[in-house]
Structures are given as C-alpha cells and as structure tokens.
Computed example of a mutant assay.
Amino acid sequence: MIKISVDQISHKLGSPYYLILGSDPYLQHYAQTELRKAFTHAGFNEQLTFVIDNQTDWTAIFDSCQAMNLFSTNTLISLDFGDGSLNAGITAKLNTLSEVLTPDIALIITLNKITKSQENTIWYKTLSDKLVVVNCTTPDTLQLPQWIKNHLQQQHITIGPKAIELLCYYYEGNLLALTQIIAQLKLLYPDQNISYDEVESNINDSAIFTPYHWTDAMISCKTKRAIHILQQLKINEFEPLILLRIIQRELILMINLKKGLQTKSLKQTFDEYKVWQNKRMIYTNYLNRCDLKSLFNLLAKLTEIEISLKHDNQAQMWDAISSLSMQFMGFDKC
C-alpha cells in the first residue's frame, strides 16, 4: 500500500485500486477527476459510479463486475460514500466485492475517514498490495501556506509571503474559493508576479471554520485568529448555544486537568482524560497560564450567558460570547 498527498497523484497513476480518504470537497473532486482521466487514457472506457448508503443495490455493483461489455473489457467502478461511513453491513459487501474483482476492473473508493479496526478488514487487506491511499484532508493552519505555494508553482504564479498569509487568513478551510481567487488573479495579472496590493484588492472573506478551530485558537492564545473565527461563525449563523456547549466542555476539561495536576504528572493526567497527543502542548501552555479560580469564574460567566439566552437577542448573545472569548484568553498577554 502507498499513501500519498493529493498533489502527488500524477506520479502514482497506474495502480488498479485507489482510496480517496478525507472530506475536503475540492481535493476529492480533483483526485477523482485526475484518476478518471488516467483510467480513460488507459482504456477503461466503461466507468460506473455508485453512491453508497444503506439503500445501495449491491447486486448491481456485483453484476457490473461480471457483465461483458461489447465495447470495452475494462471497467472502472467508483464507490462514493459522501458523508457516510463504514458499518458492518457495508463492510461485508466490500469484503465480497474485493473477492470478485478481476484484472480488468479498477476501483476508486471515496471515503471521509477510516478507523484502524477497519484497516484490518478483509477488503482492505485484499486490496492493500495494490492500493494507493490519497489524502484529501483539508490542510490545517500550519500546512496551508505550503499548500498554497505548491499550487502557485503549478499555476506558474509568484506571490510574496505576506500575500500568501493574507490568502491563508481569508480562505482557510475553503480550498474551492481559494483556488478560484488564485485563478482570478492569474487572469487579472498575467505577468505572473502578483503583488500584495493586487491580492488584497481582490479578496473576500471566505474562510470556513468549525467551533473547534475557535477553541483551539483561544487555548493557544491567538487573539486575532479567535476573533476572526468567531466573526465567521456569526456570519454563517452558527447556533450560539452549540458554541456555549463546546466551550463548556473545554472549561470542565481544563478544571479537571488542573485538579488532576495537583496529585499526578502531566502525562498521567492527560492519559486519564484522553487528551489527544497533538493538543497536549497547547493545553500544557494554557494550564501554565491559568488558575482554578479563573476557570471557575469563566464557567460562572458562561452559565449567566446561557440563562440570558432566552431573553437576549442574537446580537447581544454574540457580544457576550465575544466577551467570554476574550476573558478565556485573558490570563496572559496574547
């Protein structure tokens, strides 16, 4: 099995089996398009796509593996799970499918995620020797600048580091809008060397965030980023009560961690509360900045906001959440 990023796909064509793994719609579409073109060039003229859910007619899929086509002996089967996931019933069908595949059948599976236990199933192991796994996860805030640089290089465009930072700020989490603005800039400024002012005059705020981007920014004490994310969540009409629930969970976790550190080591405490490895550093820094009294004060303020939720209008509610966010980051200079 080979694991690659989506921008390496042109170098890994020729395998009969591909697993497009990750939920970014732009990267998924790009990978699917490149693979379909490559298979067409290789003579796979019959290309069938099936959307997989609990109502899928698997008999039609199995039949397509055995049907003789008068115009083509090579068939590409694409299984698109959309936002769905694997369950026991679908896994059993995939196990059966993996056993009936022949050399003249290629397979593309598009799936948002797969667990370690699912990697031990029959179908995954059967395909693994010839399987290419294409990572289509949206680049995070640390990965995005390099992703933009690579994309600009492919488009033969030069944009300075400050302008790339600007693109990251306004288009994080939205690669479709990001690639569209880059294409627009290329049309507007065909000299290939685009200035900061030219980028700034054409951008709009199209970043897509989740509440977990917001809490991570607050825990990391990144004030500007936290404010920007909260503004975008408000623009996209995210439900304030859900934000309160998410930050409540974070505060309760912080309180438990702080209490645990009174009698246990940092590692023991993190292990007890199952804190992900990639978040332990920012949690450690935050815990070093705060104290229990301040955390309980935050929790009390959050409770007040929730009680007033039934009486205050949306504008006042967002102001209260913004104030809470700033207080959350107020233990040290951010």
Rank of each mutant, 00 (worst) to 15 (best):
T141P: 07
K162H: 10
T126I: 03
L175A: 12
T73V: 08
E119D: 08
W147A: 10
L111A: 02
Q153T: 15
E99L: 12
K116V: 05
I148F: 09
L94E: 05
G89K: 15
K113N: 14
L176S: 14
T158K: 09
I90W: 00
T137H: 15
A163N: 07
W147S: 09
Q154V: 13
L127V: 02
F81I: 05
L101Q: 04
T110F: 05
I122M: 13
L175F: 10
L144T: 07
I108M: 13
Y171W: 07
N87V: 03
E99R: 12
A106N: 08
E172K: 05
T141N: 14
T96E: 12
L79W: 02
A88V: 12
L86W: 06
D83K: 09
Q118V: 05
Q146I: 13
N174D: 14
A106H: 02
T73K: 13
S98F: 02
E119C: 11
T115K: 09
L152C: 12
I77E: 03
I157Y: 04
K125Q: 15
D80W: 14
G82L: 07
L167W: 06
G173E: 07
T121P: 13
L86P: 00
S78N: 11
Q153C: 15
I114D: 06
T137G: 13
I164W: 04
E172W: 00
N74D: 14
D83Q: 11
Y169Q: 12
T121L: 07
N120A: 09
I105F: 04
N87R: 00
G89P: 00
G89L: 12
N74E: 13
P139M: 08
H151L: 15
Y171S: 05
Q154R: 15
K125Y: 09
K149A: 15
P145W: 03
Q143Y: 05
E172H: 13
I164L: 00
L152H: 08
I164R: 01
I90V: 06
K116G: 10
N87K: 02
K125C: 11
K149P: 11
L175S: 04
A88C: 06
K116N: 12
H156Y: 08
K93L: 03
I148A: 05
N87Y: 00
Q146C: 08
G173L: 05
L166G: 04
E99H: 08
T73E: 15
L101K: 05
D83N: 11
L144Y: 02
L111K: 03
G160R: 01
S128T: 13
K130H: 11
I114A: 07
G82H: 06
Q118T: 00
D129G: 11
L144S: 02
T121S: 11
A92L: 10
F81W: 04
S78P: 00
T91N: 11
N95V: 06
T75S: 07
I148K: 04
Q118D: 10
N87L: 00
L131F: 01
T126D: 13
Q155H: 14
V133S: 08
W123G: 01
L176I: 13
Y171V: 06
L79C: 04
K125D: 09
